[in-house]
Amino acid sequence: MTIYGLKVLVVDDEIAIQRFLRVALNGQGFIVSEANTGQAALQAITLNRPDLVILDLGLPDMDGIEVTRRTREWSKVPIIILSVREQEDDKIAALDAGADDYLTKPFGMGELLARIRTVLRRQSTVSSEPVITIGGLVVDLANRLVTMNGAEVQLTPTEYDILRLLVTNAGKVLTNRQLLKQVWGDGYDDLHILRVNVSNLRHKLEPDPSRPTYIHTEPGVGYRLKSLL
């Protein structure tokens, strides 16, 4: 996967942040354009069709979550949220609105670049590969077969559904609500059952369930399958 020449739209009203993002992303080979209001961002997304949007939540004219929601009405462009808001409610709201990832300011550039790479890779591999391999974990989507270090792992249908969602969105945080909705269907919000299933899944997959290496918990938000090991 090459990132050279990909267009990134940075939406932030802080000049200092825009500046260092531009320097760092240019250095990585991205073509960077900027917007400092929600309106300008929506316009730029429509006109320039960027390959990636880095979006601040606290914009002067409208909330970043609103920008995400309007964008998602017609576009699947990956959106990474950068925000000083660290409350779980904000993260969940952004992710549920359709953001691909959420990073709390202040952040390390290394972390941001890793997230960008994950998002872009997922974009390019979505539903094209029938077999996904992450470390020792191999999930054969076509045959509903899961192996860990070569040994087959027996999963219940629910556990498999959860794993499938996590694997196909590897690297992305899936909120509890998204998981519940997609596995159990609309109107189902019993977190209890999700927790129990994830716990079981971990016991079957993880070498040490107390220090999981595959399925990570984002406290208060949801789960994420580590994409690279």
Binding site: L191, R195, S199, P209, S210, R211, H216, T217, P219
Partner: peptide, 30 residues
């Protein structure tokens, strides 16, 4: 408070996950 059913093991795992860098090679027994 956002009370939700919570797996203690999960919580400990997540905490250790966050502290991964600081832990380095320090042995931890759970």
């Amino acid at each position: 408070l956002r009370l939700e059913p919570c797996d203690i093991q999960d919580a400990i795992g997540a905490a250790l996950d966050q502290l991964e860098e600081r832990l380095g090679k320090k042995p931890i027994v759970v």
